Amino acid sequence: MRSYLLRGGDVFSPEPLGRCDVLCVGERIAAVGDLGGVCLPDLEVVDVSGLVVLPGLIDNHVHILGGGGEGGPATRTPELSVEEAFRSGVTTVIGVLGTDDVTRSVASLVAKSRGLAAEGMSAWVMVGSYQLPVATLTGSIRSDIALVEAVIGVGEVALSDHRSSQPSFEEFVRLAAAARVGGMLKGFGGKVNVHMGDGPRGLEMLRRAARETEIPVDQFIPTHVNRNPKLFDEAVAYALEGGVVDLTTSTTPVFLAEGEVKCSLGLRRLLDAGVPVERICFSSDGQGSLPDFDPEGNLRGLTVGGVGSLWEEVRDSVLSEGVPLERAVPVATSSPARFHRLPRKGSVAEGFDGDLLVVDQDLRPVHVMSRGSMAVRDRELIMRSTFSRR
Rank of each mutant, 00 (worst) to 15 (best):
Tyr4Arg: 05
Val25Gly: 05
Asp34Pro: 01
Leu40Gly: 02
Glu44Ala: 14
Asp47Phe: 11
Val48Lys: 10
Leu54Ile: 02
Leu54Ala: 05
Asp59Val: 02
Val62Phe: 06
Val62Lys: 06
Ile64Pro: 00
Leu65Cys: 07
Gly66Met: 10
Gly71Val: 06
Gly72Ser: 00
Arg76Ala: 03
Pro78Met: 03
Val82Tyr: 11
Ala85Pro: 14
Arg87Thr: 04
Ser88Tyr: 03
Thr92Trp: 07
Val93His: 01
Gly95Ser: 10
Gly98His: 12
Ser105Asp: 00
Ser105Leu: 00
Val106Gly: 12
Ala111Gln: 13
Lys112Val: 01
Ser113Trp: 06
Ser113Leu: 07
Leu116Val: 00
Gly120Phe: 09
Gly120Thr: 09
Ala123Glu: 09
Trp124Leu: 09
Val125Lys: 13
Ser129Phe: 04
Ser140Glu: 12
Ser143Ile: 06
Ser143Val: 09
Ala150Tyr: 05
Asp161Ala: 00
Ser168Gln: 08
Glu170Lys: 13
Glu171Arg: 09
Phe172Asp: 11
Val181Lys: 07
Met184Leu: 05
Met184Arg: 14
Phe188Arg: 15
Val192Phe: 05
Met196Ala: 10
Gly197Glu: 05
Gly199Leu: 02
Pro200Thr: 11
Leu206Gly: 03
Ile221Glu: 06
Ile221Val: 15
Val225Arg: 00
Ala235Lys: 11
Ala239Arg: 02
Gly243Tyr: 12
Thr252Lys: 13
Val254Glu: 15
Arg268Leu: 10
Arg268Ala: 13
Arg268Ile: 05
Arg269Met: 14
Leu270Asp: 10
Val275Pro: 05
Val277Met: 06
Ser289Pro: 08
Asp292Pro: 03
Phe293Trp: 08
Pro295Trp: 03
Val307Gln: 13
Val307Asp: 11
Leu310His: 00
Glu312Asn: 08
Asp316Leu: 15
Asp316Cys: 13
Asp316Tyr: 13
Glu321Thr: 04
Arg327Ser: 15
His340Glu: 09
Arg341Phe: 06
Gly351Gln: 11
Asp355Ala: 13
Leu363His: 11
Ser370Phe: 08
Ser370Asp: 08
Arg377Cys: 12
Ser385Gln: 14
Ser385Arg: 12
